[in-house]
């Protein structure tokens, strides 16, 4: 009986080992895995109606503000950020010629980059600008080292005229599409 038991176990084992095999596997391939998602988000919206622009008597700038902006400063993000594009759209239905500037400031307050836009009075075309960071564009370290944004809007025209457009205003829109290497 013990002999039979042993033979059966051996037979089963033999069958399994004889017929079982596996194609060659290369688990080192995992090192080659590349995961680079595109992350898209709006960044900044600045909007002003013409009435406000007319009421600001300060010469030139009707808006200037600096605020902290450090999403790319986070170590996890900074290490993985590969490249990106920041899109701007400016729409002006006021009667004024305007100027917008967006400065990327370092932690020390130094300007790392600046995007400026001169916008014609109504009827003005939609102004768009794509700023590339990374290969073929600005140095990606500008984004990595950006700690704050300074936005300035200037009125280059008068402070009395009013556009005939309904609800005259100027709008600066911006968004970003960034590539991150997760793996």
């Amino acid at each position: 009986m013990k002999g039979l038991l042993f033979r059966c176990i051996m037979a089963f084992t033999l069958v399994l080992t004889t017929f079982s095999c596996s194609e060659e596997q290369d688990f080192n391939q995992f090192d080659d895995l590349s995961i680079i998602p595109t992350v898209a988000s709006s960044i900044l919206l600045v909007e002003s109606d013409e009435e406000f622009i007319n009421t600001v008597s300060t010469f030139g700038a009707f808006y200037s503000q600096t605020f902290n902006f450090d999403p790319f400063n986070e170590q996890f993000v900074a290490e993985r950020l590969l490249e990106g594009v920041i899109q701007y759209e400016i729409e002006n239905t006021t009667s004024k010629e305007l100027n917008f500037s967006v400065e990327f400031l370092s932690e020390q307050g130094d300007a790392l980059a600046i995007d400026t836009f001169n916008i014609e009075p109504d009827p003005a075309p939609l102004v768009t600008l794509d700023v590339v960071y990374g290969p073929g564009g600005r140095n990606i370290d500008i984004l990595r080292n950006t700690s704050a944004l300074r936005v300035t809007a200037q009125n280059l025209g008068d402070d009395t005229s009013t556009s005939t457009s309904p609800d005259p205003k100027v709008t600066l829109r911006s968004s970003g599409d960034f590539l991150f290497r997760l793996k």
Partner: peptide, 13 residues
């Protein structure tokens, strides 16, 4: 929902 940093003038001046 969000559409990024938003400054509406004159409310936010």
């Amino acid at each position: 929902s969000n559409e990024g940093l938003t400054v509406i003038l004159p409310e936010d001046i």
